[in-house]
Design a protein around this nucleic acid. Structure first.
Lengths: 235, 235
DNA sequence: TAGTGGTCTAGACCACTCA
DNA sequence: GAGTGGTCTAGACCACTAT
């Protein structure tokens, strides 16, 4: 573990234990440098990281202060399983479709691949406490993830499988949210009715080299579920 | 302008002019240091900023490369006026309510102020090309923004007024998106019907010291309008 | 083996805030 | 005027990638 990571951890711990209470000043860069026997640049590296996360904020000429709000480190980009597990919610997934097909124009465009290229199509119903929350359909290029069909995604987390088995982590995603009239099977699953208005999310997840990894199309019961987002400004 | 900002600008310009094409390696940190007559640390400061924005990505032992996707620098956090202007869309706003009232419990909690504290309530209809897109209701503490009633927010951008007049910039926001049944006046404005299902956005904007600045409650016609979001991972 | 980015040092000068 | 964060230097060693 590097020195600046140690400093980050130390400060996070102090904030959590309220040794550095919310709104208070933390030790100056010089003091921290003395504490950790390191140069000021190393301390700055740590503080800049904490400032980018919103844990602290800096004011020139005054000092560095603990933020009054604790944002989640990464609000979304977690995947359903992780979010549910963290919140201690009893969840499950039901696989409706898992197959290989030739990509449509829409899917190909979003994944930046040629039309008719083979893609996995994984359609699942997400449930929390036994009730359907969303119907989610994910497309991934077969070429990038050979052997994905061996996994049972009623049990496995897709995000975790991509990360652990293929070493691919979603670094960034672009999501568009709208409403959509739905009926038939989907309406029945989400609302228990013949027709309804769903919260629709279309998103593309990008990997390390900013190459599209997954294209996802999800319908939520927007009366029971909200999509939460943290939006960050410059810096 | 600082040196690292000059380097950032130079690289952004080269990428835009395709002097550094997408996917290609940009000059190494040493080379850039020689070009700009500066130390490697200064170059790194510039490259780290570009990497955080997703403009370039770095790989240890290989080099720094131009990303294949260009994300907007700040996707949201712009406010309605700015987004519309950037996209060249003809827009307008109609003020339904602009008054000072004592904050409800809900508003007080989100703004982290005492209940019954005076807040501005600004309710506007947002229109693009003459058609209503959203009904937006913003609450701001009166104490922080004395004299706000002097402005006509049918014409002025709220975000720009906060920034230019009061020096307050929204640095971060948390937004929750869901669906909501609406009827009466609101349904008539958004859908031209007696009833409808709207895309509902509840958000809190935070300023420099992560103090809540504004609490906003908006209803969108989710059939005509989508909420777009960029979600970033760690780093 | 040569080149790259990742980490780190021990200084320096500046603009800013606050008493 | 003392202290703070913002910027910058001119080196250093390391782990990693490529050939």
């Amino acid at each position: 573990m590097t020195k600046y990571q140690q400093i980050v951890e130390y400060i996070e711990k102090c904030i959590k234990n309220e040794i550095f209470p919310k709104g208070s000043a933390i030790p100056s860069e010089q003091e921290l440098g003395a504490m950790f026997q390191c140069s000021r640049m190393t301390v700055r590296r740590a503080l800049d990281e904490l400032a980018a996360e919103g844990v602290v904020y800096k004011t020139k000429g005054r000092g560095t202060f603990v933020s009054n709000i604790a944002f989640d480190r990464l609000y979304s980009l977690k995947g359903f399983s992780q979010i549910m597990r963290e919140q201690g919610i009893d969840y499950s997934s039901e696989v409706l479709i898992f197959e290989i097909l030739n990509s449509s124009k829409d899917v190909a465009q979003h994944l930046k691949i040629l039309q008719e290229t083979e893609v996995y199509c994984l359609k699942r119903v997400r449930k929390a406490m036994g009730k359907a929350i969303s119907i989610e359909c994910v497309y991934l290029p077969v070429q990038e993830f050979p052997g994905l069909m061996d996994y049972d995604f009623a049990q496995c987390s897709l995000y975790e499988t991509l990360a652990n088995v293929y070493g691919v982590k979603i670094e960034r995603a672009v999501q568009s949210i709208s409403t959509e009239d739905i009926e038939g099977e989907e309406a029945k699953i989400l609302f228990g009715k013949k027709k309804g208005v769903a919260l629709k999310s279309v998103s593309v997840g990008y990997g390390k080299n900013f190459k599209p990894v997954e294209y996802e199309n999800a319908l939520y019961n927007g009366y029971k579920y909200t999509i939460d987002v943290v939006i960050k400004g410059e810096n």
